[in-house]
Design a protein around this nucleic acid. Structure first.
Lengths: 340, 340
DNA sequence: GATCGGAATGTCAACGTTGTCAACGGCTCT
DNA sequence: AGAGCCGTTGACAACGTTGACATTCCGATC
């Protein structure tokens, strides 16, 4: 087996600064009761020797590993996961925590979860959608007494903690924006039902239609958040007797599919059909015309979730909280008044 | 501080199976010299108690941590990173290794790298492009005697190990495909120069033009692999006195930009302008028309790189290798004969 | 000047695993 | 029957850090 190049340990620093290892530990962990000059001397030596605490040893000795797990579903929607990663990494780093990723297949089992926590001893776990609603996972974590925070869960549960975007309100506003153009027949492509966002977006949409006395005009078809289902959904909607003059898709990938479907039917966007998406993903700018959509602060959501998780780690019996962040309408060129 | 729920350790298993902890260790690590019936008994108890070895303790006690690091650049090209992750995760898992991610800003310093390795004690490191060519990083790893494998490096270096796609050959073939349609003025949008792929793709393109006696017709403009630079590049190319009838972009995002630029100039794709991309990313299917492109086996490349890295971990003085995987032309609808 | 108290520092045993080496059996070979 | 060997097993000391607790130091108090 390959030899590791020698590394400086806490002992080397202790020797160099002429103190005990315990004092070095105190300095490195910012604990009180160290004379400022001692602290300075230790830091000096640590820096000179390029000392970095060994995380494995820390995790083994201490009660905590200073690491949090992130279970994410691998197949779809990677731009979402990307933003979650970035937000969580930044927030974690700021607090001295590192992130341990665990890609999962569609339905991670409780055993997978248990194995993950047992092996890694993560202090807590972040659960982005749709895993945030996986009963087996949350059960396993509760059983292991491992704190977790849900990101965009489907249903907000009493004693737990979550951070979500205000999907409902955002989709209400988006629908209102569409109606303001004069559209009266508005199609809607729903998202993957396993994501809580899907139901909320639909609810916001329907709520707005109802508020405008258009409840009967609602036309919603199923979708799974991917390009192809957007394309299929649009064909389905546009085939009807009274086809919509505008279509809202529950995310941008599907909206891109809607645009392609329109083009396949010889319809110009936005002249013959207005289209709106959701998420403000990169795809929203890659379509022609660029998509009117809603910016979800996914990175911020993940960051706040991480902060809340870390906060809860210190508390023996923390207050459950449910944070909701607002979204922002992004107006681009895919929306116009209906051809009268 | 929150209490951890009690976990079963190697000692519990040893007690349950009435053997020493060392024997359990041997069984769990598939070491030889354990009587089959003993092994079976230990495995039985381990399963019953849901025993999972503690990775921190393993890393501390053993010479190896069974984990490998993956430094990746966070800003651009996430679909690439996604595929790298998936390939590497799968290959790592198969060999019992876990992956430790480290998102980096544009130019990670040697110190960052050293800190990462020192803290985590990863056994080896994977370097996807463009970090694979970051001198500070490779230097730091060499200095720490930490094995690494480069993924798609710019330049293949003697004593190191790498896995790359055959960008040059693929772009040669793609250009040949374009010429076969009858195009004679072919524009080219280059990629980010920090990626090795960029130079190779350009070289393949130019090589093919030369082979067909069209070296003088080459028109290549700069790009950075993002949508916007594709759009700018296309405008630049199409503004010229003898504008190209086909444009090859060094990746799909830029090709999407080219298509939008064409539309902005009132050109129909593919009637007035043929377009080809590279990578077969999701974006290639989100454009209209869908893009003719080249499928790079990124996941497989990352997987093979991971396997090679793990293989090298066991060897004291492993043979350096440079593996090159072939790409595949994906013909879609964005390409047609030039309007004569 | 003895006593007290709190801040500063140190000692030592964990933590859960692997590496080293020694011990034990049963077998073959003389 | 004794020597030697090999396959099997175990005892014990690492690994680098933190937690619990002990000790020292120093100034304030009586």
């Amino acid at each position: 087996m390959r030899r590791q190049s020698p590394t400086t340990t806490i002992r080397d620093v202790a020797q160099g600064a002429d103190v005990s290892i315990k004092t070095v530990s105190r300095v490195v962990n910012n604990e009180p009761n160290v004379r400022p000059e001692t602290r300075a001397r230790v830091l000096e030596v640590a820096r000179a020797l390029q000392y970095e605490p060994n995380l494995a040893a820390r995790g083994l000795a201490g009660r905590r590993t200073l690491s949090i797990g992130l279970l994410y579903e691998t197949p779809h929607e990677f731009s979402y996961v990307k933003q979650v990663l970035e937000g969580a990494f930044a927030a974690g780093e700021a607090a001295g925590y590192s992130l341990l990723l665990r890609p999962c297949t569609a339905q991670p089992s409780g055993d997978d979860t248990r194995r993950f926590v047992r092996q890694t001893r993560v202090d807590g776990v972040l659960l982005p959608a749709p895993i945030s609603d996986c009963g087996e996972v949350t059960e396993a974590l509760a059983e292991l007494n491992t704190p977790f925070v849900q990101i965009s869960p489907k249903t907000v549960r009493e004693g737990w903690t979550s951070v979500s975007p205000n999907d409902r309100q955002a989709c209400y506003a988006l629908t209102e924006h569409v109606l303001a153009f004069g559209h009266r027949r508005v199609g809607f492509v729903r998202g993957d039902e396993r994501h809580g966002a899907s139901a909320n977006r639909l609810a916001g949409h329907l709520g707005c239609l109802q508020a405008h006395g258009l409840a009967d005009a609602a036309q919603a078809v199923a979708g799974q958040f991917d390009f192809e289902s957007g394309r299929r959904g649009a064909h389905q909607l546009l085939r009807s007797a009274a086809p919509p003059t505008a279509i809202i898709a529950s995310n941008d990938d599907m909206a891109a599919g809607v645009i392609v479907a329109a083009r396949e039917l010889g319809l110009d966007v936005p002249r013959d059909l207005s289209v709106a998406g959701f998420d403000d993903s990169p795809a929203a700018l890659h379509t022609w015309p660029p998509l009117t959509t809603v910016r979800q602060p996914v990175g911020e959501i993940a960051g706040r979730a991480t902060e809340m998780l870390i906060e809860r780690l210190g508390d023996e019996d923390p207050e459950p909280r449910h944070l909701v962040l607002e979204c922002e309408l992004v107006v681009r060129a895919s929306m116009a008044a209906p051809a009268s």
